[in-house]
Design a protein around this nucleic acid. Structure first.
Length: 482
RNA sequence: GUCCCCGUCGUCUAGCCAGGCCAAGGACAUCAGGUUUUCAUCCUGAAGACAGGGGUUCAAAUCCCCUCGGGGACACCA
């Protein structure tokens, strides 16, 4: 019997959810859903100076929007509550006491300034900047002296003199010599747990089986492995994901454009497109079909197919994916998604006809934010293009088409799609014209432009009166030319 | 600086672990055609890469070594 898969996404609430963090969350989630396991959200808020509740809320809301629901964690609870590190201090204390009892941690009285000075010296001597172990073997007298000085102290873990090997699903076996690791802080002088200690305690307590995270954590892993071994705990399986870089190959940052998930939401991206795009960063589907909905992604996902190299976030591709997902939606659904992106200028009447208008414009939509300018172009700002007016004036027979069209529109009793189609046909029969010769002049008359969405479908939501007004305006514009 | 990771079209990648099926496949973007009353969608096609150098082998994108390039870590941040 195989053990149930348990994974976690453990952000620190020091900022909005970044595309890198979202990708990490997504890979954990996809893997877990594929395996039928439990996915846990844990908030790593032990850095009291930088953590803020507002960020926790924003991260949760971004995950929510992406649809990455968690089985255990804030709001939903679970058997391993609490899921905020800041509320688990007693537990860290308990494990720390155990380490003290074993004599594998020792108090370090060095101040931040001393440590910084030490690192400076090491750098100057071209040595690796690393903790030297100056408090490693302090005598009782020395300790008392420091205590008497009123110095604070942190606890460091005395690492064993043997290399730590990370068996990583993505990277393979990676070994770190102990002199590269150095004794590290377990409990800070303010009593709070250091990251490398807290994660191990949490991951163990919560029964995490797979740790999937960014490869900036790879070199932390030896410290965590030492702790697992020390406590006799079963370490999880590791999978370190290569970084996501900006367009110039540097670490992704603000100056590369949108880096927060929230910004994509505001720009009119669909969550399913974001999920699809994120999934393709460092992973590829075995069947080579890249456009996939969430269920297909879950079905196809495996950690074995994550690749080792860093990737850059390709904005063009996300746009393309967004267009694919958007156009796959029925018009009524698109209307709902459009809710926050409707233009101020949307008239009450057009609002009622929104599904029809959306149907008309959907092929031109890539982002939800594309709708408003298109709507305004075709439905609000009617200002005939001079080039189109000129074309109409100079094209043989074009004006005649418009006059006949006007006559038929005026005579129309109702204005359904069928009505409009038969009206156009009647005009065509009368003129003995068809194809471009017929449609193009009509288009210019009603839209003021030489190109646009399907003309006969456009007339319906526009309505009889608006069509007539426009034809009138265009005819006037032609006359003004002379 | 030290250690670690990575290096296939402009970009995301398949192929690499188990060498021949690869004169390297797909997708985005680009360009050219086509369908469509037009734009878009869609379809077809073009261009475009194994970082460099050494090995090993009958055979290397795939294995080994070196160089170069990029990234990460080296915190009482996570």
């Amino acid at each position: 019997m195989t053990k149930e898969v348990r994974t976690r996404f453990a952000p620190s609430p020091t900022g909005d959810l970044h595309v890198g963090g979202a990708r990490t969350a997504l890979f954990n989630w996809l893997f877990t859903r594929n395996q039928g396991g439990d996915y846990i959200l844990r908030i790593e808020d032990t850095d009291f100076n930088r953590s803020a509740d507002q960020y926790t809320e924003q991260i949760k809301s971004a995950l929510d929007w992406l649809g990455l629901n968690w089985d255990e964690g804030p709001d939903v609870g679970g058997p391993h509550e609490p899921y905020h590190q800041s509320q688990r201090l007693d537990r860290y204390k308990e494990v720390a006491d155990e380490l003290m009892k074993r004599g594998v941690v020792y108090p370090c009285y060095c101040t931040a300034e001393e440590l910084e000075a030490e690192r400076e010296r090491q750098r100057a001597r071209r040595e690796p900047p690393r903790y030297s172990g100056r408090c490693r073997n302090l005598s009782e007298a020395e300790k008392e002296k420091f205590e008497a000085e009123g110095r604070d102290y942190a606890y460091r873990y005395r690492i064993p003199e043997k290399p730590a090997t990370v068996k990583d699903i993505a990277k393979g076996e990676v070994s770190f010599p102990p002199d590269q690791v150095g004794d590290f802080i377990v409990i800070k002088s303010n009593g709070s747990p250091a990251y490398n200690f807290a994660v191990v305690v949490d991951d163990h307590d919560m029964g995490i089986t797979h740790v999937v995270r960014g490869d900036d954590h790879l070199s932390n892993t030896p410290r965590q492995i030492y702790l697992y071994e020390e406590m006799g705990w079963q370490p999880p399986k590791w999978c370190h994901l290569a970084m996501i870089l900006g367009s110039d190959g540097e670490r992704l940052s603000k100056r590369h454009g949108a880096t927060d998930v929230e910004e994509y939401r505001e720009k009119g991206f669909l969550p399913e497109a974001m999920v699809n795009a994120l999934a393709l960063l460092g992973w590829s589907p075995p069947d080579g079909v890249e456009v996939k909905d969430v269920d297909e992604l879950i079905e196809a996902f495996s950690l074995e197919r994550v690749n080792k190299s860093a990737s850059r976030f390709d904005f063009d591709k996300v746009r393309y994916l967004n267009g694919q997902h958007l156009r796959a939606l029925p018009a009524t659904e698109i209307c709902e998604r459009l809710e926050d992106f409707l233009p101020e200028s949307l008239t009450k009447n057009d609002r009622e006809n929104l599904p029809e208008i959306v149907e008309l414009l959907r092929e031109q939509l890539e982002l939800l934010t594309d709708f408003a300018p298109l709507y305004e172009t075709y439905f609000v700002d009617f200002s005939p293009e001079p080039s189109a007016v000129k074309w109409l004036a100079e094209q043989d027979g074009a004006l005649e088409v418009v006059t006949v069209l006007k006559k038929h529109v005026e005579a129309a009793q109702s204005f359904s799609l069928a009505d409009v189609e038969s009206l156009i046909k009647a005009a065509g029969d009368e003129l003995e014209q068809s194809g471009a010769d017929l449609y193009k002049p009509m288009r210019v008359a009603v839209t003021g432009q030489l190109e646009g969405p399907e003309f006969h479908r456009l007339m319906v939501p526009l309505g009889r009166q608006r069509c007539l007004d426009r034809i009138e305006t265009v005819l006037q514009a032609v006359e003004d030319l002379n």
